[in-house]
Structures are given as C-alpha cells and as structure tokens.
Design a protein around this nucleic acid. Structure first.
Length: 127
DNA sequence: CTGATGACGGTGC
DNA sequence: GGCACCGCCATCA
C-alpha cells in the first residue's frame, strides 16, 4: 500500500475513478482536487487515454454542470449517456445529471485517505 | 526548450 | 439560461 508516490498522475486518476460506484458520477474538478489539485483538464486528458485493459468506468466522470463533455470534435460520445442510463441515472430534459442526487461524495473516505487522496465534494453539495 | 493542445472550471456579461 | 474569456497544467510535437 501507499505506493501512490510511484504511480504516475494518470495511474492515480485511474485508480480513483475505478472507485466510483455504478449509478453515481464525479466531476473532473472533483477528481482533480482528490488527486492533489491537478488541473481538471488533466483529468479529461486522462479519460481520453483510458487503457481498455484496466476497465475504467470513464463514463462516470462528467463536467461541473452535470453534463457530458463534448470531445475535441464538438460532439459527445454517444456511448457515455447510454452507459449511464443503463446504470439507472436519469438525465433532465436539457441533458443534465442532478449532482446532488447522483454525485459521488466518497462514502469510502477511509480508502481514499489510506491511498493518499483528498476529500472533495461535487459542486452544489454542502456538508 | 518553446509553443500548442485539451472529455475543465470559474467569472462576467 | 447562454456565451465569451481567461487561467489552469501535464503532454506532446
């Protein structure tokens, strides 16, 4: 344990994203804070490079508005919403996920501490 | 080394 | 609610 210092930033991001349970979502900014305040863009970059072999639930990371972020070509990946709906996540008419209802605020906080992550709540969620 | 890029976020209008 | 900027920072050419 505690080998996070030998993990690359992306490996730390992947390890964390794998902790998000089905039916819940985290934001890029939230993940960024958890791994130690790296830029949210790095999280997005990491998600665009997810190794298939590691089976990372990349679909559970959305932007701060609770929306699926568009790719560089200006379009969403249609697989993302499909996968999230399969996990019983409901989208509003305008295509947004309610972060207060579905946002992940780290029920497994002990695990995060042991692995060197910091706490971070989804936008709009208070203690 | 330097500059460009990007699955972001916050602010301001 | 939407849109335009600007700051961000690891990677990459």
């Amino acid at each position: 344990m505690d080998n996070h210092s030998s993990d690359s930033l992306y490996q730390r991001i992947y390890k964390l994203v794998k902790q998000i349970p089905a039916g819940q979502v985290a934001t890029y900014g939230q993940i960024a804070k958890m791994v130690g305040n790296c830029g949210p863009r790095q999280v997005g970059y990491a998600m665009s490079h997810t190794p298939q072999a590691q089976n990372i639930p990349w679909q559970r990371v959305v932007n701060s508005q609770g929306r699926i972020s568009v790719r560089k070509d200006g379009a969403e990946d249609p697989r993302q919403m499909k996968l999230l709906k399969q996990e019983h996540i409901i989208f509003s008419k305008s295509g947004k996920i309610d972060l207060v209802e579905y946002g992940w605020f780290g029920p497994d906080w002990e695990w995060m501490q042991q692995n060197g992550y910091q706490q971070a709540l989804p936008p709009g969620v208070e203690n």
